[in-house]
Simulated assay, not measured.
Amino acid sequence: MIGRGRVGASIFSGAVLAGTLAFALYARATQTAPGQDRYDLSARFVSANGLNRGADVDLAGVNVGRVSSVTLDPASQMAIVRFQLNSELKLPEDSTLTIGSSTLSSDNALIIEPGQSHTAVAPGTLMTHTIEPSSLEQQVSNYIFGGGNLGQ
């Protein structure tokens, strides 16, 4: 009888591990589109308030990447946001980045406003043209008095 209990426990433990592995593979697959290459960039912000790992990177309202990490640079005491962009997107080097959401009910995203430069940002670049995210109160005020333009 003791042997059957151990075998049952081993089978159950194996099933739990298999389920965990399946979930991890599913979670990883939902973070990137199949067959889509991406390249890494980072940006420096005074504040990355409300931005989390896994957040969308949006350009013209279209998801073009994903935030990989949000950390604090101890030397400058600024937030460093690392993100990945779809490889077919060539971002001008004078592009501006901000943190915000298109509606009051959606999650914050890293929003890209493309620049006019003909030179594209190289993979691995630390971008410094950033705008501090506005508070929820400022977003509501912009929405009420600014005709609904939350991204402004």
Rank of each mutant, 00 (worst) to 15 (best):
M1K: 08
I2P: 02
R4E: 14
R4M: 11
G5T: 03
V7K: 15
S10M: 15
I11M: 09
I11H: 01
I11V: 12
F12Q: 07
G14P: 03
V16C: 12
L17C: 14
L17M: 15
A18V: 13
A18C: 13
G19S: 10
G19R: 03
T20C: 13
L21R: 07
L21H: 08
A24C: 01
L25F: 14
Y26M: 05
Y26V: 07
A27W: 07
R28I: 10
R28V: 10
R28Q: 12
A29R: 13
T30I: 10
A33K: 11
A33H: 08
P34A: 14
P34W: 07
Q36W: 05
Q36R: 09
D37M: 03
D40M: 07
L41M: 06
L41W: 05
L41K: 01
S42F: 06
S42K: 15
A43H: 12
A43W: 12
R44Q: 15
R44A: 13
F45N: 02
F45V: 06
V46N: 02
S47C: 04
A48F: 07
N49P: 00
G50C: 09
G50W: 11
L51P: 03
L51A: 02
L51S: 05
R53G: 08
R53A: 11
R53W: 04
A55G: 11
V57N: 02
V57L: 07
L59F: 05
L59Y: 06
A60T: 09
A60M: 12
V62K: 15
V62P: 00
N63M: 11
N63I: 15
R66M: 03
T71P: 03
L72D: 04
D73H: 10
D73W: 11
P74N: 06
P74G: 00
Q77D: 14
I80D: 00
V81H: 01
R82M: 02
Q84P: 00
Q84T: 11
Q84F: 04
E88L: 02
E88D: 12
E88V: 09
L89Y: 12
K90E: 06
K90W: 02
L91Y: 08
D94A: 03
I99G: 06
G100F: 11
G100A: 08
G100V: 10
L104F: 05
S105E: 13
S106R: 14
S106E: 15
A109E: 10
A109D: 06
A109Y: 01
A109L: 03
A109P: 03
A109F: 04
L110F: 01
E113T: 15
P114S: 08
P114W: 05
P114F: 05
G115F: 06
S117A: 08
H118S: 13
H118V: 08
V121G: 02
V121E: 04
A122G: 00
A122W: 01
G124R: 04
T125I: 04
L126P: 02
T128A: 06
T128I: 11
H129N: 14
H129F: 07
I131D: 00
E132N: 10
E132D: 11
E132Q: 11
S134G: 12
S134L: 10
S134M: 11
S134V: 15
S135I: 09
S135C: 09
L136A: 12
E137C: 01
Q139W: 00
Q139L: 08
Q139H: 00
V140S: 00
S141P: 00
Y143G: 04
Y143W: 10
F145R: 09
G146R: 13
G146L: 08
G146A: 09
N149W: 05
